[in-house]
Write a protein that binds this DNA or RNA. Structure first.
Length: 199
DNA sequence: CGGAAGATTTCT
DNA sequence: GAAATCTTCCGA
């Protein structure tokens, strides 16, 4: 069943946890792709030095975060890769959840074609990779997740969820210690970047 | 208007 | 470990 608007309006950390095990669905002219969310991170703008919207910064790029929850926040990083976020909380609060990894469920052949690889483990095990596999690009910026093209639905609610520190923010001072990363325990598709954290 | 930095991936 | 590579943001 498709998630309704109310789901996205609550506490960002709670939503991040609930997102693990949900199905992300994207319908395109090429076909449908579905993937289960297995890794997510919270970004709570006003208090989070690692967030684009830290200190309530507002710009063309971050403005969709100021809308109510349930919209897609997509941006380009390093000039080459897209990252897919889900806007959360109510209007005026720049909070979102970064989707870091999926487990491919449907449309796997299409994902392989887009990613140009046959290795299923490499299809969606990272923020940039999953966008490529799902066909998500900046044309979907601000897309309403309550619509019929790109949306989330219930899938599993029996997964064991682990909490950890976030991946990318070793240098953002105290924000580094926030346990705002949620993963599905023992899932093979979570990003392996955690092993590469520099000492 | 120009310079600097960035929520990454891939290969050596 | 380093390179690839370009958009966004901020200061002048």
């Amino acid at each position: 069943m498709k998630l309704k608007r109310e789901f996205y309006l609550g506490d960002t950390l709670e939503i991040s946890k609930k997102l693990i095990g949900k199905m992300l669905v994207h319908k395109t002219p090429e076909g449908i792709t579905k993937g289960m969310i297995v890794e997510a991170e919270s970004y709570i703008g006003p208090f989070d030095k690692a967030a684009h919207s830290y200190n309530n910064r507002k710009s063309e790029r971050t403005k969709v975060q100021y809308k109510e929850g349930g919209y897609a926040y997509i941006y380009l990083i390093y000039g080459m890769y897209c990252c897919f976020n889900i806007v959360t909380s109510t209007k005026g609060n720049p909070e979102c959840v970064l989707i870091r990894a999926l487990e491919p469920i449907e449309g796997i052949e299409l994902m392989k074609k887009r990613r140009k690889t046959d290795d299923v483990k490499k299809l969606t095990s990272g923020p940039g990779k999953l966008c490529d596999a799902m066909g998500i690009n900046r044309g979907l910026y601000g897309c309403d997740l309550c619509g019929d093209e790109l949306y989330l639905e219930d899938y599993r609610d029996d997964l064991e969820i682990e909490t950890s520190k976030r991946i990318n923010v070793q240098y953002s001072e105290e924000a580094n210690d926030y346990p705002w990363r949620f993963t599905a325990k023992d899932n093979k598709f979570i990003s392996v970047k955690i092993k590469k954290i520099k000492q």
